[in-house]
């Protein structure tokens, strides 16, 4: 009971309306060029993020930790936005180049979301992408399933040019994530909010 009460209280807190003023820019840049491969084996660069806003997450298909929370929330957020008439592309960039081959991602991606763009590549190419998006990842051990990676888990909301808009902690529920995303994307559609630079 007390857990339900707490959850309700937190939900109320998390649902608090944000102020109208544009949020302060972060003191570092997020985003940049990359050269990866999608789940169909097609080379993809940052140009793949142009044309539709994106919700971007770094993780891996075999992850039994934060990805099991973040990826379903990413998918549900995208669906909530779609229901609201806001098209957002779900994107996963793997941190596990050994197991997340294009073939493996082709099988895994639909389980996350039918429109998921799943990106992989060489270790160096993925490291470059992580550096561009300031995401940390580290091999922390092995279990019977294979390597275990620790990795950053904030989701990034990008505009239709691939520019960083804001970050979303994976602890937020899909409703809250969608509400925040709409603040940026509805605003852009109405010309009320400029893309938020990171510096």
């Amino acid at each position: 009971m007390r857990v339900r009460l707490l959850a309700a209280a937190l939900a109320a807190g998390l649902a608090a309306p944000a102020g109208a003023e544009a949020p302060p820019p972060l003191p570092f840049d997020i985003g940049g060029p990359f050269a990866l491969i999608d789940q169909h084996g097609t080379p993809r660069t940052e140009a793949a993020l142009v044309g539709t806003p994106s919700l971007l997450f770094f993780g891996y298909a075999q992850c039994q930790a934060i990805c099991t929370v973040a990826l379903p929330r990413l998918a549900e957020t995208v669906d909530l936005l779609t229901e609201a008439g806001v098209e957002v592309r779900p994107v996963l960039v793997t941190v596990d180049p050994v197991r997340d081959t294009p073939e493996a991602l082709r099988e895994a991606a639909p389980r996350v979301h039918p429109r998921l763009l799943a990106l992989t590549g060489s270790e160096a190419a993925l490291a470059a992408a992580r550096k561009a998006y300031r995401v940390e990842s580290e091999l922390i051990g092995e279990d019977i399933e294979g390597p275990l990676y620790s990795h950053g888990s904030f989701l990034y909301l990008l505009d239709d040019r691939g520019n960083f808009l804001t970050l979303l902690p994976p602890i937020l529920g899909p409703e809250r994530m969608a509400k925040i995303a709409r603040k940026y994307l509805d605003g852009r559609a109405m010309g009320q909010l400029e893309p938020v630079g990171t510096r």
């Binding site: 007390r2 009460l5 707490l6 209280a9 937190l10 109320a12 807190g13 998390l14 608090a16 309306p17 944000a18 102020g19 109208a20 003023e21 544009a22 949020p23 302060p24 820019p25």
Partner: peptide, 17 residues
């Protein structure tokens, strides 16, 4: 619970920087 619920609310007043 009430205290926890207010924690993130407090950030709603945005600073410009």
């Amino acid at each position: 619970s009430a205290a926890a619920a207010t924690m993130l609310c407090a950030a709603s007043a945005h600073a410009a920087e």
